[in-house]
Amino acid sequence: MSANLDVRRVTDLFHVYADALDRRSWAVLDEVFLEDVRADYNATEVVEGRAALIGMIRGYLDGCGPTQHLMGNARVVVDGDQAEASVKMRVHHVGAAERAQLTYECFGWYHAELVRTAGGWRVASWCQEVTHQLGTAEVFARI
């Protein structure tokens, strides 16, 4: 398999993640994360396991209005069946119902350590690094 194809497939996982969150397609995250993934969201939420990670994400987004997760400037280093990758992110959130006038936006990076599996590349370790924020986290009605 070519290195360029591996880089594209790893980069595509960030896009699959973003689309899954914006469409609330939670089952798609099984194609992104290993079952025993470890995730750190800016040191405010650290979770072990895909089910716990999806539950944490849903706790934020199920009570939120529309979101848009934008990814760009990916950097990927593949070493055999392992890879390290990062991508810049800009994420916009709008509140729902009585919070519809509120917005929250964060900027920074997602960092990942990945492994090649029989089903393709999967994230073993995931970290969100937020560098700055706009608006209010009150858009989230934690469920």
Rank of each mutant, 00 (worst) to 15 (best):
M1C: 08
M1Q: 10
N4D: 15
N4S: 15
N4V: 13
L5Q: 11
V7I: 13
V7K: 09
R9F: 04
V10P: 02
V10K: 01
V10H: 00
V10G: 00
L13R: 01
Y17G: 00
Y17M: 01
A20Q: 08
R23F: 02
R24E: 04
R24N: 05
R24M: 03
S25L: 11
S25W: 07
S25I: 07
W26Q: 04
V32F: 01
E35T: 12
E35A: 14
D36V: 10
R38C: 10
A39Q: 01
A39I: 06
Y41S: 07
Y41A: 02
T44I: 11
T44E: 11
V47T: 07
V47R: 06
V47C: 06
E48V: 14
G49Q: 07
G49I: 04
R50G: 01
A51Y: 09
A51Q: 13
A52W: 06
I54H: 03
I57R: 12
Y60L: 11
G63H: 01
G63M: 06
G63R: 02
G65S: 07
G65Y: 02
G65V: 04
P66S: 10
T67S: 13
Q68Y: 10
H69F: 06
H69Q: 07
M71V: 15
M71P: 06
N73F: 04
A74Y: 05
A74L: 03
V77D: 13
V77G: 10
V77M: 05
V78K: 03
D81A: 12
Q82V: 14
E84T: 10
E84L: 10
V87K: 02
K88M: 15
K88S: 15
K88L: 15
R90E: 08
H93P: 00
G95K: 08
A96W: 05
A96L: 11
Q101P: 11
L102S: 09
T103L: 07
Y104E: 07
C106R: 09
G108S: 03
Y110W: 09
H111G: 09
A112C: 14
E113I: 12
E113L: 11
L114V: 05
L114G: 08
V115K: 12
R116G: 03
E129P: 00
E129G: 05
H132D: 13
Q133A: 12
Q133T: 15
Q133L: 13
L134W: 13
L134D: 14
G135A: 03
T136W: 05
F140M: 08
I143D: 14
I143F: 15
